[in-house]
Amino acid sequence: NKFNKELQWATWEILNLPNLNEEQVKAFIDSLRDDPSQSANLLAEAKKLNDAQA
Rank of each mutant, 00 (worst) to 15 (best):
F3Y: 07
E45M: 15
P36M: 09
W9D: 04
S31M: 13
Q8E: 14
E23V: 11
F28H: 01
N1K: 04
L15S: 09
A27M: 12
D51M: 14
F3M: 11
A44R: 11
D35E: 07
P18D: 06
L20V: 02
D30G: 14
V25L: 06
R33L: 14
D34Y: 13
S39M: 14
L43W: 05
V25Q: 12
A52V: 10
L7Y: 06
P18K: 12
N16H: 13
N41E: 12
V25R: 15
N1Q: 05
K5F: 04
R33N: 15
D34E: 12
K26V: 09
Q53R: 04
L49H: 03
E6N: 05
P18G: 07
L17K: 01
S39F: 15
V25F: 03
V25Y: 05
L15I: 06
S37A: 08
L20K: 00
S31W: 09
S31P: 02
N4K: 03
A44H: 13
Q24H: 03
E23G: 12
E13N: 09
D35A: 09
A40R: 15
D51V: 08
S37R: 06
S31V: 07
A40L: 14
Q38I: 09
K48Q: 10
W12P: 01
W12V: 03
A54I: 10
S31A: 11
N41W: 15
E6I: 14
K47I: 08
I29D: 00
A54G: 08
Q8Y: 09
D51R: 13
E45V: 13
T11Q: 04
P36E: 03
P36I: 12
N50E: 01
L49F: 05
W12I: 04
S39T: 08
L20Q: 00
F3H: 15
E22S: 13
Q24E: 03
F28I: 04
E22A: 12
L32T: 01
Q24P: 00
A54H: 08
D30S: 15
N1V: 03
P36A: 05
E23K: 13
E45D: 08
L32P: 00
W12R: 04
N41R: 12
L7A: 11
L15K: 11
E23D: 12
D34I: 13
F3E: 14
A46P: 00
S37Q: 08
L32E: 00
E13P: 01
Q53E: 05
Q8V: 08
W12D: 05
L43Q: 03
N21Q: 08
D51W: 13
F3L: 12
K26L: 10
V25E: 02
N1F: 01
P36W: 06
L20T: 00
E6M: 11
L49T: 06
A54N: 09
L49E: 04
L7T: 05
A46I: 02
K2V: 12
D30P: 00
K26A: 12
F28P: 00
E13T: 14
L49P: 00
N1M: 02
R33V: 11
I14P: 01
D34Q: 12
N19V: 02
A10I: 10
N21P: 03
A27F: 14
N41H: 10
I14E: 01
K48M: 10
K48F: 10
A54K: 06
E13K: 14
N16A: 10
K2E: 15
N16L: 05
L17M: 10
E13V: 15
L49R: 05
E13Y: 15
S37T: 09
E6A: 06
N4F: 11
N1D: 15
L49I: 08
L15T: 08
Q8A: 11
S37K: 07
L17F: 05
L20H: 00
W9Q: 11
